[in-house]
Amino acid sequence: MAKLLLVEDDLEMQGLIVTYLRQAGFEVVATASPIESLEILTQQKNIDLIILDLTLPEMDGFELCKRIRTFSSTPIIISTARGDIYNKIQGFEQGADDYLAKPYEPVELIARINAMLRRFKPKEMVFDNLSINVSKREALINGKNIDLTNTEFDILIFLIENRLHPVSREAIAHSINAIHEESSLRSIDTHVRNLRAKLGDSAKEPKFIQSVWAIGYKFCL
Rank of each mutant, 00 (worst) to 15 (best):
M1R: 12
A2I: 02
K3W: 04
K3V: 01
L4P: 00
V7K: 12
E8W: 02
D9R: 12
L11T: 05
Y20C: 10
Y20R: 11
Q23I: 02
G25T: 01
F26R: 03
A30P: 00
A32M: 12
E36S: 08
L38F: 07
I40G: 02
L41T: 06
L41Y: 08
T42Y: 06
Q43K: 15
Q44R: 13
Q44N: 15
K45M: 07
L49W: 00
L56S: 00
E58Q: 14
E58M: 10
D60M: 13
E63Q: 12
K66T: 14
K66A: 13
K66I: 10
R67K: 15
R67G: 06
T74S: 12
S79T: 04
R82V: 00
R82H: 11
D84Q: 05
D84N: 15
N87E: 07
N87G: 03
I89M: 11
E93I: 08
G95F: 13
A96M: 00
A101K: 05
E105V: 05
V107H: 15
L109E: 01
L109S: 05
I110N: 04
R112M: 12
R112A: 12
I113D: 03
I113W: 05
I113E: 03
L117A: 02
R119Q: 14
R119W: 10
F120Q: 03
E124K: 13
V126K: 15
F127K: 11
F127W: 10
V134K: 07
K136I: 07
A139R: 06
L140Y: 11
I141K: 14
N142Y: 07
K144I: 07
I146D: 00
D147E: 15
L148T: 02
T149V: 06
T149N: 06
N150G: 15
E152V: 00
E152N: 00
D154I: 02
L159C: 03
I160A: 02
N162R: 13
R163I: 00
L164P: 04
H165Q: 11
V167N: 04
V167L: 07
V167C: 06
R169Q: 08
E170P: 00
A171M: 11
A173R: 01
H174V: 07
A178R: 13
S183K: 15
L185P: 04
I188S: 07
T190G: 12
H191V: 07
L195R: 05
R196Q: 08
R196K: 09
K204F: 09
E205N: 15
E205Q: 14
E205F: 15
K207S: 03
I209M: 01
I209C: 03
Q210V: 05
S211G: 06
I215C: 06
